[in-house]
Nucleic acid binder design. Structure first.
Lengths: 247, 247
DNA sequence: ACGGCTGGTTTACGTTGTAAACCACACCAT
DNA sequence: ATGGTGTGGTTTACAACGTAAACCAGCCGT
């Protein structure tokens, strides 16, 4: 299995001289745990993530994790929280100066997308765990984000209704699009583990259109489709803005 | 817990005269199992669904289920399959005569939505389980549907590209929108169980827009928002059609 | 030297999915 | 009637999971 267990025991015998603390290096903290969890999900799928295995990956016994995490649920919540944080780092939406709401929205969308694509197997968690506040929808689930979004739009003339409507349109667009993109990226979304490449859907022959268009139905890895859809959305938002704005 | 266990034992004693077979009525079949599973999820959440409990609900031991279902995974697949079937019954998309692709698409959308709202806690399964064919995306995951969709559009002048693009736009729209709708309906989406009503998100005070607009952020139970978004989509599809069509 | 904290391990238990063996009846040909 | 073969279920068993509870081992300031 591992082969570095012996290494650990070696250390166990060799700690006499260094200041080497028990298990490994620094004493483990919540952040290390969360990022280890994400790593694990990224390369072995959500289904395989288990307290014991996560512990093992960190060179520690499963129960050790419970000092930093309330339980598995809380750990998963922590994972989505971490992903969300990664998103705003990745979209520069907090500090970077924005020119116009379109730029802002675009930046946001791309930031979220980058993270989604970077962690295809973890992303669905965002959609599948209930947010802290029920009216806070994935993937924009942090209060800060929603605030920035709404404030940003209103600062540029969106009415309350227009801003809220835009928020909804934006988040549902992003969620749907990214979930589908991510799903065709080898994700095993959900409780199930990797399902090895379905051989050839039975009875394909009786569905001529599907059969003929099959290659086209696979998602393109390029971002062109996303780009176009996003463009659409921006237009739509622009319309919303003028429908109810009063400047 | 139940109190009809005794009833069963009564029957056990009383089977002498009737032809009453062992456990209960007819001898259990896959369909009964699946619909029991859906019922269970509907009123106790996906997380609580367990082979033993499902068996119990059917008046049978857990292992009995394995005669009709390969395992839990296969059972969950069965559940989504059942839901998808329910959708096409519910949207009359197979037999009912359609007048124009817009009507067709609208029917489809509403059929899917009805099922989603009828089973808010089960619907996310559709999004979370990998489809038989990887290019077959939720929520339109049956070959038949995709075929009908594509064929329907092409019959009315959509080019291959336009039809495929429409298919994608449609499914990602539907998925995103419904997932969000369903999520704010008391669903416990995913592996976690019901999380009891978050008390009041901490630090709400520092997010004025969010705070002020909070009621508006909750989804409206009416279908107006869905209707509008769908309308948007139809317009967009109409554009796609003429962009690449050649008649 | 010593009580207490910190960070971890051990042990233990209940619950889950499921393999394997087992059983009871119904049905049928002999 | 008599045995053989399904069919539809139960029993038993086990490994893996999440996690509570008790238990260490060093380090700390006094």
């Amino acid at each position: 299995m591992s082969g570095h267990n012996d290494a650990i025991e070696d250390a166990d015998a060799a700690i006499v001289e260094g200041k080497a603390p028990p298990s490994r290096g620094r004493p483990l903290d919540r952040e290390r745990i969360l990022s280890a969890a994400i790593d694990y999900i990224d390369d072995s799928g959500l289904a395989g993530l288990t307290m014991r295995r996560l512990g093992e990956r960190l060179g520690v016994e499963a129960m050790a994790l419970y000092r930093y995490v309330q339980g598995k649920d809380e750990l998963l919540d922590g994972v989505v929280e971490a992903l969300v944080d990664a998103m705003d780092v990745d979209s520069d939406v907090i500090d970077a100066p924005q020119d116009g709401w379109q730029d802002f929205v675009q930046r946001l969308a791309h930031g979220v997308r980058r993270v989604a694509l970077a962690h295809p197997k973890a992303f669905p968690l965002i959609a599948s765990r209930p947010p802290e506040a029920p009216w806070l929808r994935p993937p924009l689930r942090s209060l800060r984000w929603v605030e920035i979004f709404l404030a940003g739009l209103e600062a540029e003339g969106f009415s309350d209704e227009a801003a809220v409507a835009s928020y909804r349109a934006f988040s549902s667009f992003l969620l749907g699009h990214l979930l589908l993109e991510v799903a065709t990226l080898g994700a095993d979304v959900g409780p199930l583990d990797v399902v090895d490449e379905a051989p050839e859907p039975e009875g394909l022959a009786s569905y001529p259109h599907v059969q003929r268009l099959r290659p086209a139905l696979s998602i393109d890895t390029s971002s062109v489709e996303f780009e176009e859809a996003l463009e659409e959305l921006l237009n739509r938002m622009a319309l919303m803005r003028h429908e109810t704005t009063h400047d």
